[in-house]
Every structure is written in C-alpha cells, then in structure tokens.
Amino acid sequence: MIEFELNSDFIPMIQLLKVTDLVMSGGEAQAVVEQGLVKYNGNVDYRKRLKVKKGDIVEFNKQTIKIV
C-alpha cells in the first residue's frame, strides 16, 4: 500500500496517479481513468478531474493508495 500525504485540500485523480509513479504521463493517467481501470473508494470512477481528499482510497494496477 502507498500512503500519500496530502498537503492541501485535494489532489486531482490524474495528478495523484502521476506523482505516485503509477503512470508515466498525464495522458496515460487520463486514459486509464477513461477505461475504468481506477477505483475510488471501492467503485470504478471515470472522472479525470475527481478531487481526491484525505481518507480516500484509490486502487489501480494492483496498487492501493491511501490518502493521509
């Protein structure tokens, strides 16, 4: 599990995927979200600009990111 420390109110989903090195680019992040490969708090979510906040759980490619 990756614990990502959030220093602001939120982080956009595609930015989170990039900063945790789960994707190589913003374009790749957008593509995996559009394809339904990312789960947000247990449910598939297709929103690229989704605001991820503290306490949220994001799952992608057999990795879990906990926002702390």
Rank of each mutant, 00 (worst) to 15 (best):
A31T: 09
D9T: 12
V68C: 01
N61T: 04
D21I: 01
F60E: 05
R49V: 01
I11S: 10
V58R: 00
K18D: 03
N61K: 14
Q15F: 05
I11T: 12
E34N: 13
M13N: 04
E3H: 12
F10W: 09
K66Q: 10
D9I: 01
G27R: 03
E59A: 12
N41Q: 06
V52M: 09
Q30E: 13
D56W: 04
V52C: 06
Q30D: 08
K39P: 02
Q35E: 14
N7R: 12
K53Q: 12
Q35T: 03
K48D: 02
F4W: 08
S25R: 08
F4D: 04
K51C: 02
K54W: 03
K18E: 03
P12F: 03
G42H: 03
K66L: 14
V19E: 09
F10G: 01
I57R: 08
V68M: 09
I67W: 06
P12A: 12
D9M: 06
G42K: 06
L22A: 02
L50K: 15
E28A: 09
N41E: 03
Y46F: 15
K53S: 10
D9C: 01
V33I: 15
I67K: 05
E5M: 06
V32Y: 01
V68S: 09
V68F: 06
V19R: 10
L50G: 00
K48H: 07
S8R: 14
R47H: 09
N43V: 13
L17W: 01
Q63W: 04
D45R: 06
E34D: 07
M13V: 09
L17Y: 01
K53F: 01
A31K: 14
R47V: 08
Q30T: 10
A31F: 02
S8M: 03
S25D: 04
K54R: 15
Q15K: 15
M1E: 10
M1Q: 01
E59R: 13
A29I: 00
L37T: 03
M1K: 05
V52P: 00
G36V: 13
V38T: 08
L50Y: 02
L22E: 07
G42Q: 07
D56C: 03
E34G: 02
V52E: 02
I67R: 12
V33W: 00
Q15M: 11
I65F: 00
G55T: 05
F60H: 13
R47M: 05
E34M: 14
Q63L: 04
V38I: 13
V44Y: 06
Y40S: 14
K62N: 15
D45T: 11
S8G: 04
K53T: 13
D9R: 11
V38R: 00
D9G: 07
